[in-house]
């Protein structure tokens, strides 16, 4: 029987330590061990982007890595994008305003991808927005509203926080 490994990482600003099986993916770790169920499990082989999280600030697919590979690193999930419990980030607010979610399954991954884009480029053009969400599938096909939401978030028309 393979041996379990003790890992430590920072998730949404909090230090966590768990002993895990090496084969546990990062997304299963976040959901099952830490109860952070905002990150969704979609295709589980790197196609849909629903499981996107920030790893040391960069968007990655949490189904395409094992939790042990994130030992010592910083992870931000969709729960960590909001400024405080019960409040929305500007981008999340813009998603509501622009009706950028229908069933909501892709939304955590879309938010993470778009958040990373705006961190890097506060005023992206349409082509840059589409490229940033190119790795995220929305099966409701609501891409246009998602693009609109990112434009809205970057336009400073929303200034709640």
């Amino acid at each position: 029987m393979p041996s379990c490994v003790t890992i430590r990482m920072t998730v949404n600003g909090k230090a966590v330590e768990r002993t895990v099986e090496p084969r546990q993916t990062l997304v299963d770790f976040l959901r099952d061990e830490l109860g952070l169920t905002g990150t969704h499990v979609g295709c589980e082989h790197g196609v849909c982007g629903a499981c996107s999280v920030l790893l040391d600030g960069q968007p990655v697919r949490s189904c395409c890595m094992f939790a042990v590979q994130a030992d010592g690193l910083q992870v931000t999930t969709v729960e960590g994008l909001a400024p405080a419990r019960g409040r929305l980030s500007t981008l999340q607010d813009a998603f509501c305003e622009a009706h950028a979610l229908q069933c909501g399954y892709c939304t955590p991954g879309m938010l993470v991808a778009c958040h990373a884009l705006l961190e890097r480029n506060p005023h992206p053009g349409e082509a840059q927005i589409r490229e940033a969400i190119g790795g995220n599938l929305c099966r409701c096909t609501g891409y246009q509203q998602i693009v609109d939401a990112v434009k809205l978030a970057s336009s400073q028309e929303l200034c709640h926080d």
């Binding site: 697919r61 395409c64 990373a116 940033a132 190119g134 790795g135």
Partner: peptide
């Protein structure tokens, strides 16, 4: 791939 895969 995509930005998310190229990051790893």
């Amino acid at each position: 791939g995509h930005q998310q895969t190229r990051n790893r």
